[in-house]
Amino acid sequence: MRVLIIEDYEPLRTSLRQGLEEAGFAVDASADGEEGLWYARSNNYDVILLDLMLPEVDGLTVLSRLRREGKSVPILILTAKDTVEDRVKGLDLGADDYLVKPFALEELLARVRSLVRRGYDNKDPVIRVEDLEIDTAGRTVRRDGHAVSLSAREYAVLEFLAQKVGQVVTRTAIWEHVYDFHSDPESNVVDVYIGYLRKKIERDGQPKLIHTRRGQGYVLGRCD
């Protein structure tokens, strides 16, 4: 899942990026509103973390512009402004959540995960596909009751497929939600990870769960 941080305070930006990356997110970060807006327009983020007092273009303007342009990406406002007035204003302009600084990292991560689920219309943090269980909160995967150990990137690819279970997902889409701007993956990296995933979750003649749609992409689970 890919997250954009728009925060002008450098030490916080750096730590947030590290914390989110270590929690398995692909992270882009921007220090001002204008650049942040550009990032948000050019990629499909799963969540945007938005500070309000920003140079160039302030946070509320970024928010309202994105919403006016029809972007439905979940946005979490992250700010030191804590008055009810500020919260109401932010939420009314189309933010999905509001967290006041300073915050607990745990809570931030939980809220981001919750926003990711909401973005895919999934309420249940555990996604079940046939006998495959993906716990998006604990980041664990079980098949037929047995734990499956995945690398961070493999998990990221699987979670994205799982969030869009039953839908054809293109390589580009997978790529977009698993890598950030800083990574420079090989062009066939998605296929490589799909191969790894298949080896791990479709062992010992278990039924196939990841299907290839030639020329389109991949589908997790049954597809009509």
């Binding site: 305070y9 916080l12 730590s15 030191a80 600084k101 300073p102 607990a104």
Partner: peptide, 8 residues
């Protein structure tokens, strides 16, 4: 803001 920075 700096408190959030140091805490995070």
């Amino acid at each position: 803001t700096p408190l959030a920075g140091v805490r995070t």
